[in-house]
């Protein structure tokens, strides 16, 4: 029995018909044609579907879409301002962290949500924050180094999130 789902996606209100059994990932990819959250396992293991839900990084394949009613979802498409990359994106790019790039949107979201809450993390805290995101190419070192560089301010201040209410 499908229902109308209203939530805020990257700062814009959206309205979409969703089935009870559909995940947030499915709705984003298949109904809203937003393919930046990737489907690597559909089982909550790989983290490539990570998005920010009400300020917290979550795996969108583990969320029933209808439960995000009235909430705010940010994908990697919602980052960056005035044509400029978000510091996390810039750092990942300059550090050469992505290889095939399939895990990257999820990594960006996990790292961004983490830095919003922990602007001065230790190296081990960053590793812990990204532990739910698998990179089969083996770019972990560069991802962690890049997040540390952002925390040290190498890529400028982190802009405030674009969360708005419905």
């Amino acid at each position: 029995m499908s229902k109308v789902l209203k939530f805020v996606l990257n700062g814009m209100p959206v309205k979409v018909v969703a089935e009870p059994q559909e995940t947030l990932l499915q709705v984003l990819r298949e109904k809203l044609s937003l393919t930046s959250p990737k489907c690597g396992c559909n089982h909550g293991d790989c983290g490539s579907c990570t998005v920010i839900l009400n300020g917290k990084a979550v795996k969108s394949c583990m969320i029933i879409a209808l439960t995000v009613e009235g909430k705010s979802v940010v994908t990697v498409d919602g980052l960056g301002t005035d044509g400029k990359l978000h510091p996390v994106q810039q750092a990942f790019h300059e550090y050469g962290a992505p290889q095939c790039g399939y895990c990257t949107p999820g990594m960006v979201m996990a790292a961004t949500a983490f830095l919003n809450e922990n602007p001065n993390p230790s190296y081990d805290e960053v590793k812990d924050a990204l532990a739910g995101n698998l990179c089969r190419c083996g770019g972990y070192q560069k991802y962690v180094d890049a997040v540390m560089a952002v925390a040290k301010g190498e890529f400028g201040p982190i802009p405030k999130g674009s969360d708005v209410d419905v």
Partner: peptide, 14 residues
Amino acid sequence: RVPRFDGIGHVTGK
């Protein structure tokens, strides 16, 4: 450090 030619696409999810 040499940024990848397709790096921007990867970090923006495009």
